[in-house]
């Protein structure tokens, strides 16, 4: 955040400080997306609809049962809101990087390699998808309603947790997207597999981790830490005990999980890019 003052100025910044180049990249993207208002509005609506389908699943399931994995409908709405908010924000920020095969085919990645900026930073800032705010809006709506209808004691700890969780959760999903992008350098034709990883962990995150069998619980806690994005913090917020293997106080560890994911993500990305430029193996 070298010179935030320049962000507000009308004239384009020249040297622009440390973040100048990225500011220019992002603002040019956003302007181009907002150029066609009607089309943009429809896209936001479509994104909202995707979130709606997801929530419909929860709604239908709870039309015949009252408790799933230790959470009632209100509790599950809180879980869903947290997970979906984090995922949709991550999808907005970095979701486009699952298009690595397209970037390779069109030579966009080569153009990135010819510019004096880190490739991953260029990739992230090259196509931020504002339309995915539709899904975030739905998630935020569900989250706010859930916070009202659940019996929550808003202690400073709970409020802190409510602030930390979406940020760290977004970071976790962003990291998972980057891991998937790194892997895609090897799976050019099989890029759909990356979806299993990213969208799959989102799907798992919107349900209580306790309903899964032990191996899957271990997977979604320690390998792909989806449980940290919403389930564990939800237990803490609602004052519920965690199941065996995952005590509720782990809900505080979401930032640590985000750090771990990003460590792996940067390694995977580096390895993937080295594979592409032929520097590896």
């Amino acid at each position: 955040m070298a010179d935030l003052s320049a962000a507000g100025s009308r004239r384009p910044t020249a040297a622009g400080g440390l973040l100048g180049p990225y500011r220019a990249l992002v603002s040019s993207r956003l302007r181009s997306q907002l150029a066609y208002r009607r089309s943009f509005a429809l896209d936001v609506l479509g994104s909202f609809g995707v979130g709606l389908i997801e929530f419909a699943e929860v709604y239908v399931i709870f039309s015949s049962i009252s408790v799933l994995g230790g959470l009632d409908f209100a509790g599950l709405a809180l879980l869903f809101g947290l997970a979906s908010l984090s995922f949709s924000l991550a999808d907005l920020l970095v979701g486009h990087i699952d298009r690595i095969p397209t970037y390779l085919r069109t030579g966009t990645l080569d153009a990135f390699l010819l510019r004096p900026l880190p490739v991953l930073a260029q990739l992230v800032t090259s196509d931020i998808q504002l339309r995915r705010l539709g899904r975030s809006a739905l998630a935020l709506g569900v989250l706010v309603v859930a916070l009202v209808v659940n019996p929550i004691d808003f202690t400073p700890a709970v409020i802190t947790l409510l602030l930390i969780t979406p940020i760290a959760g977004t970071a976790i999903f962003c990291g998972l997207f980057v891991v998937a992008a790194g892997i895609q350098f090897w799976l050019i034709e099989g890029s759909e597999m990356a979806n299993a990883f990213t969208y799959g962990s989102n799907y798992a995150a919107t349900f209580p981790t306790s309903i899964f069998s032990l191996p899957m619980r271990v997977l979604f806690t320690f390998v792909v830490p989806a449980a940290f994005t919403a389930y564990l913090p939800t237990l803490l917020i609602l004052g519920l005990p965690g199941p065996a293997w995952t005590p509720a106080w782990w809900g505080w560890l979401t930032p640590l999980a985000a750090l771990a994911v990003w460590g792996v993500a940067l390694l995977a990305w580096r390895a993937g890019l080295r594979h592409y430029t032929g520097a590896g193996s």
């Binding site: 910044t13 020249a14 180049p21 500011r23 220019a24 181009s32 150029a35 004096p116």
Partner: peptide, 21 residues
């Protein structure tokens, strides 16, 4: 950038290369 006017592309490139005024 295929969806940007040429002028805009140069503005972004100048920022990327951190070119002064």
């Amino acid at each position: 950038w295929w969806d940007l006017p040429l002028r805009e592309s140069y503005r972004v490139l100048a920022a990327i290369h951190r070119l002064g005024p």
